[in-house]
Design a protein around this nucleic acid. Structure first.
Lengths: 207, 207
DNA sequence: GTCTATACTCTGATAGAC
DNA sequence: GTCTATCAGAGTATAGAC
């Protein structure tokens, strides 16, 4: 390591700056939404020129992918972290927060579509993200099924897929017309799945 | 009506040609997918020049909106029509067909996102489409609830919203990785909602 | 009604100075 | 590391001939 100060220093500074850019970009997207999701506008918003911003990212697509990755990172630490709540509670917190950042929801939805192309930089990201998400959803459902809280007529993996689908689909509906509560609506799926089993009180007071 | 032959004739021809264009465009999108969803490429595919194609539509966005409208029209007559099947069966047929036209799924998903903008030509279309869809879903759920087939812990309108969301969300997952059966997975939601109530046979052979 | 040709805009990406 | 300047490409929309 020749001159660790310069090499490690500049490297560290590059990384730090990059992270800082992503955090600011995420805030800007959250506030201003997706209008003009061009590198130029985002660069202005974060206080850099277009070329200056692209200095840190290979392309526009990679930039936006990294913004979403940063979002997930923050969600994981600030809303899923702690480990005290279960999946249902954590998901509810994330969705409720999403209701306050429509621009981020728009960015996520747009990239969800674009990333279908295997060539897109976000393809692998969405693939891994989905698998991870469904994995933890499935584990949670499996636990509930074993506890007898929900029916095992449908396997936990499929329920997990449906839960993820519902969450994503609700976002599309909500962007089109934010006239309902995303968190409550998604939570209703848990209620519906638990079905009659969560209401033993009714059965006990039967003649 | 001065010279009905010319006015009505040209009008009728214009309409007919437009419909023909939409049908062909739908076939092309279904087959070739969304690669290069530009007016030029679509024009080539339907055998017109770019300007020639735009002669029938105000803009690219309106063109794509109309393609989706035509899709719905065909779905309604060919897969929902007849009235013999219930909503669940009809939806299953539509989703199964969608699995064979990934390009159409991609177009729908893309426009679902773009149409969030109230200025987008497809905005009203998606708004009305969603309301109609959820209306018939809700009616079906209400019937099932009254018949005691599914729990009424969640109101039918919310279930309808969740069903629509699941359908749309599954499409996103499936475009990213078509490694599962969309129709079966969506149908599993009905199974999960019916829950234990659909399995009286198990209870009878208990003691 | 359809085509050719073109104008215009937007945007991502790069080169090179500082 | 950041900026200015510029390029190249794509794509929509329109004008005008036929």
């Amino acid at each position: 390591m020749p001159d660790p100060h310069r090499t490690r220093g500049s490297y560290a500074k590059g990384i730090a700056k990059r992270e800082e850019i992503l955090e600011r970009a995420l805030e800007v997207v959250a506030r201003e939404g997706m209008r003009g999701a061009s590198v130029r506008e985002l660069a202005d918003a974060v206080g850099l020129s277009q070329a200056g911003l692209l200095h840190y990212f290979d392309s526009k697509e990679e930039l936006f992918t990294e913004i979403l990755r940063k979002r997930d990172e923050i969600d994981a630490t600030e809303r899923l972290g702690g480990g005290e709540g279960d999946v249902r509670e954590g998901l509810r917190r994330v969705v409720r927060h999403n209701s306050e950042v429509p621009g981020v929801v728009a960015l996520f939805s747009r990239l969800s579509v674009d990333a279908a192309d295997p060539q897109h930089p976000a393809h692998a990201f969405f693939l891994e993200r989905g698998e991870g998400l469904r994995g933890s959803f499935a584990a949670s459902f499996r636990r509930r099924q074993e506890a007898g809280e929900i029916s095992d007529a449908v396997d936990a993996e499929t329920l997990a897929r449906l839960l993820q689908a519902a969450a994503d689909g609700l976002q599309l509906q909500w962007m089109l017309a934010p006239t309902f509560d995303m968190a409550d609506t998604l939570d209703a799926l848990f209620i519906a799945l638990a079905g009659p089993l969560t209401r033993p009180a009714e059965d006990t007071r039967e003649p």
